[in-house]
Design a binder for these strands. Structure first.
Lengths: 336, 336
DNA sequence: TTGAAAGCGCTACCAC
DNA sequence: GTGGTAGCGCTTTCAA
């Protein structure tokens, strides 16, 4: 049995396909009577319009493509959630693409999404090369980055002010009496989540007249648990007198917690700790992490809105900065 | 500037569109010379085929739809990762749909995906009603459930044998000398992740001649941190002599850990704990959780393969059971 | 208020 | 080997 098409519906209802089409698209130009008749026929035949055929004519797919490394990360998953929500509420579907950090996976996906005629592109937590942005330009679809880094500044970016957020985190510690503050970080060469946070850390120290010491930053290439554990353990060995550590991700912080348990340090009694991201992990550790929360779901939503709405407001031409927020929990102690 | 179409490429290269099409689709019926010429023209014009037009003819979208509640959950995210990986390697794109547990969100998405002519449907962690499965049948696309529950047994299911897995977890505790074992669980009315695990718990006790006591199961509707914390605290109050608890999810277990800290209990010294799921959370808690690992990424991959491959092997007609595995970490102590 | 028909970009059939 | 063309299911003029 063939699936019914508009043609078939028209025949059954004894009207033209044009009329059916009009009714389907809420246009005008038909009597209530025919409308009722057609709608009934559709119902009865179980007709479902073919979005592909529609797309061919309308030149739009009502689909946006999302490119992200590691879908299953706490951060990515939250962003994706926000994206899907906002997209769906605006009649768009979301195609997810899991890009590998190496190779030209991203280019391959870009080509694929171009063929699929996506109406927009979202890049999450990714470094956008010039090759990428050049290709996007040629694709002629709107694109927005989320927590990503691009050389091409004409692509709007939705992000948190990482430097300021890190600054706030460190200042938070300073205000609670800490002066021996270490940092666990991603790579200083990472322009995305590495250097900005390191800079914020440095700046906060500087502004509060605390001497900066290179060796008080322990960095790894990743932002994961194991990275945090190793980095923290290294840091503690080098600087046993640290009273606080700022970790550039909640996962790093959770690793730091593990390292502290291993070396018999109690948090926050012996060492205070501030995380970063505000993922659900941060409330599940023990002690619960005081952390800098990024509103990932909101970031995803904002990005979609910026992508889909014709950019009338020049204010958002270059994207949006989402406010971060320090969530106080139990991992920081105040020194008198 | 219009985007170049196949027609335009044909004109530029002085061949027919039929020839271009053949070359594009790796068919036969053209000389090496024309192939080279056409490919060069394509390259030079920056032509990209239109998958929508293709789809209209081929009656396929090379897209599969994934429906899941809560994209951002640890479990869902892992499954999605596996799905995307396997789908992409088979030339399929993935549309994610975040279904709310209430309302008829799922039906709406189903209709949408039907219009988009998806080639397959994947249901994750969801309860499939008869209305759903009836609609799917009528859509005439293959569908598979992953860690889901459906009344319609003709829909292949990819899952872990939850009862057996829970059984193994509890038996693991029993073999380590525990006899006072409580359970923190989802709702007994939840046929998906509730009752099977509870049954496994009961059965293990029974098989090892340990009396079953209803009140040693504390359940909540959710499987989250707060649920676990509350449930554990309730349980501990009622049964202070428990030496072990089996939690029906890692998040529940992490909540249980928090509850233990609050009541001054040390894990595993005072209380042993086994989690469920094997999410990345389980290695980030302190102590690291001994847990029953479900291979979520593999489950996603398997589901896609089953969905896309014509089902030649009757063995998989009804789906696949993915092996679970107990990962031993630091949350269980052996009683002598 | 309605219908006929062109055409979106492509594939596949048939003819040469 | 190659080209002409019907037609996938739909929207949208243009006429009636």
């Amino acid at each position: 049995m063939q699936k019914p098409t508009i043609k078939y519906v028209a025949k059954e209802a004894n009207v033209s396909i044009a009329t059916v089409s009009r009714i389907l698209n809420n246009g005008v130009g038909y009597s209530e009577k025919t409308k009722k008749l057609v709608l009934e026929t559709i119902q009865q035949m179980g007709y479902s319009p073919n979005a592909i055929a529609r797309g061919l004519i309308n030149k739009q797919s009502n689909t946006i493509g999302v490119l992200m490394p590691e879908i299953s990360g706490l951060v990515s998953a939250d962003i994706l959630q926000g994206i899907e929500k906002a997209a769906h509420s605006q009649g768009q579907s979301v195609i997810v693409c899991n890009t590998a950090p190496f190779g030209n996976q991203t280019m391959d996906y870009l080509k694929l999404l171009q063929e699929k005629q996506v109406d927009g592109l979202l890049f999450t937590s990714q470094f956008l090369t010039t090759e990428h942005s050049t290709y996007i330009k040629q694709m002629d679809v709107p694109a927005i980055t989320i927590s990503a880094y691009s050389n091409d500044k004409t692509i709007p970016a939705v992000r948190v002010d990482d430097e300021q957020a890190a600054y706030d985190a460190v200042q938070y510690l300073i205000k609670r009496g800490h002066r021996h503050i270490g940092m666990i970080s991603g790579s200083p060469d990472d322009p995305l989540a590495g250097s900005p946070r390191i800079n914020g850390y440095k700046k906060a120290l500087y502004d509060h007249h605390i001497e900066y010491d290179d060796s008080k930053i322990a960095w790894r290439y990743g932002f994961y648990f194991e990275d945090g554990r190793e980095a923290c353990s290294t840091l503690l060995q080098k600087h046993p007198n640290l009273t606080a550590i700022f970790a550039a991700s909640d996962e790093l912080a959770s690793g730091a917690i593990a390292a502290c348990y291993e070396s018999g340090l109690s948090i926050p009694k012996d060492l205070s700790l501030v995380g970063y991201d505000g993922t659900k992990l941060s409330k599940m550790t023990h002690p619960a992490l005081t952390t800098v929360s990024q509103h990932f779901v909101e970031m995803g939503e904002t990005a979609v809105n910026l992508l889909l709405k014709p950019i009338q407001d020049t204010k958002y031409r270059s994207g949006a900065i989402i406010q971060h927020q320090i969530i106080e929990r139990a991992s920081v102690r105040t020194i008198n």
